Each structure stands twice: as structure tokens, then as C-alpha cells.
Amino acid sequence: MSETAQSEDFFIYRVGNIEVSIVNDGHITVPLAAGLIPGVPLSEVQASLREAGLPTETVTTTFAPLLFRSGPKTTLIDTGFGPDAAAEAGSTRGLLVGNMKANGVDPADVDVVVISHFHPDHVNGLLSQGKPTFPNATVMVPEPEWRFWMDIEEMKRAPEGRMSQLFQNNRRIFEQVGERLSVFKWGLEIVPGLEAVAAPGHSIGHTAFWLRSGGEQVFIQSDLTNQAALFVAKPDWHSALDQFPNQTVQTRRRFYDMLAEKRIPLQAFHHPFPGRCHLEKNGAGYRRTPIE
């Protein structure tokens, strides 16, 4: 891979013949909560943040969808929070569309939107003021995610709070997608060069991807980890946002062991922008080396 351009909001490199653009959707900074990592004392979490040179009273999450061109087609993986979030007073998120336009990519130019899983920072950007943000795009979603989140009985069983809100939010969004929806299965090349990979745990149908071209490849991890400073070094920790904690840890270790052993580039949605790195084993965990 050879890098061809770089900025704080739009980072371009190549995988073989495919041009990849990492687009900054912004960030959220919130107070560090005691329950961020269930079962781990707050002092241990703060010690890990301190070791990484980060604040210990707040935690910042970044968001970086991936755009790529393969032949005549333009594909976007995940959508960020969307223009509606960007329009909120004081917002630091939902910047994807603005950063795309600033770099010559109009939402109408996107042919395919691929969704890794149905959490708001990945799907909310499908809509803008109740209308499709990417009006000409087919929207491709993982079959296990679609089956679960669109199941009326599962929605009735969902506990009040986050899970109930996720069901409501996903129905609100996908009601507007309509006939543009396409459901895909794991293990298949869903657009040229892009293979969908089963990576459940964070969500029931959480999906990662291989992007390959011309003998080169990058592993697009989606949300195998969100806070790199915490979960890369301590891969047995899990977030309160992980739907199936034990499976999250198993999936993470399986892929990270492989990526470290084979030194395959990793692209992450939530790691420090632009989220591209190599991994290596480091004691019981891993160390990430950014690819600049």
C-alpha cells in the first residue's frame, strides 16, 4: 500500500488498485464512568489511560467511516452519526458528509453503503432530516443483524434502556431505506474486493471485512475494539456496550493473534484517526504501531 494524501479529516491510501479514503466523522468526549469496563476497578482503567498519556477523568471516542473506489463504484462502510447530529449546537460528531464534500465526494456519488452493525454511530448517517443521505446507494446489511433487530418478538423482550432504544432507532432508520436494502451473508465477496467476515460479540451480527486488491490487503475491524488505549493492551476487558462480552473477547483475540502473526495492516473505526496500524503481541495483550 502506498499513501497518496493525508489530512486531519480525510486520509487516502491504496490497497492494490483500490483507493481508500478514511473520513473523519468527529468524536465524543464524556466523563469516565465507573461502569465503562464491567468488573474492572475505575483506578485500573485510569492507570491504563495514564500509561497511554491520556486524560483520566474523561474518555474520547473517535469515528472514522471508510470510503473506497473499486473500478467505477464508490462504496462507503458505515455512515457515522449523520448530518442531523452535526447540526446540533456544539456538536463534534456527524462530520462525515461535510468532510466528504470538502474533498470532492458528494453523497449522491456513493453507489453502495455497507453497514457493519446496527449501532447509531454506524447507521444514523443513513438519514438526513428523514430522507436518505446517500440517495443513489444500495444499502447492504449483515443478515444476522437484520434478522435480530427487525424481529418484533426480540424487540418486545428487549430491556428498557439502551437495547430498547436501539430497536426503536433501527426501525426508524430502516423504514426509510425500503427497496434499496440488500442483505448479505458472511464469507462472501459482497462488492468487488470486499469480503464480509463474521466477527460477532460487540453486536449479534457484528461484521468485519477484508479489502483485497493486487496482492495487497487490509483488515477492516469495525468495532473489535473501541478505545485502543484500553482494549488493545488489555484484550480480555470488555465494554459495557458489548452485547455478548465473552464472545467479544474471543473474537478479538482470534483476529488480533492472526493480524499480529502475519503483520497484516489493520483499519479501525474507533482508533485514533486515521485508525491504520500494525499489531504485535505484547505480553498478555497487543501493541499497535500506527502506519503513518
Rank of each mutant, 00 (worst) to 15 (best):
M150A: 11
A108W: 04
E216K: 02
P144C: 12
T248S: 10
F273Q: 00
G178N: 07
E179D: 15
Y286T: 04
V139N: 06
T289K: 08
T56A: 03
L279F: 11
M163Q: 12
A229M: 06
N17T: 04
Q6A: 10
P41Q: 11
N169L: 14
G94I: 03
F10C: 05
R147H: 10
T75R: 11
P120N: 02
A33I: 08
A198L: 07
G71E: 02
F118I: 00
S203H: 14
T4C: 09
G178S: 06
T61H: 09
H278P: 03
A268N: 04
R162I: 12
P83I: 06
H278L: 12
F167D: 01
R147A: 12
T79F: 07
A108H: 06
V191R: 14
S48P: 03
A89H: 04
V97H: 08
F219N: 02
I115S: 13
D106S: 11
L42A: 09
L188H: 12
L42Q: 10
L49Q: 05
Q165N: 13
I173L: 13
R252A: 06
A196N: 11
P142C: 01
K73L: 13
I22G: 01
A47W: 04
E8I: 02
A87V: 04
H206L: 00
S21N: 14
M100C: 05
G71D: 12
N103T: 00
L49M: 06
R69H: 10
D223Q: 07
A86T: 08
H27W: 14
L42C: 09
K185F: 07
W210Q: 01
G16D: 00
M150F: 10
S222G: 01
V249C: 07
S91G: 13
L66F: 11
Y286L: 09
P31V: 00
F255G: 00
P41L: 09
V177E: 03
D78Y: 03
R157N: 11
I173E: 10
A5E: 13
T248L: 03
T56V: 15
R157Q: 15
A196H: 05
A199S: 12
V183A: 06
S70P: 01
D223I: 13
A89P: 15
D25F: 11
N226E: 11
A52Q: 02
V110Y: 08
R254E: 14
L36I: 14
V177H: 07
V30L: 15
K281M: 02
F10A: 07
P192K: 08
T4N: 04
R252S: 02
G283D: 03
H270M: 06
K156G: 09
G193F: 04
F244H: 13
V218Y: 01
L259G: 09
G16F: 01
F10W: 12
S182A: 13
N124T: 12
A89I: 09
G35K: 09
A284T: 08
V249W: 13
V110Q: 06
D111K: 13
R288N: 03
M100V: 01
V20G: 00
W146A: 13
L181Q: 04
H27S: 13
T56S: 05
P41N: 08
A102N: 06
V23Y: 11
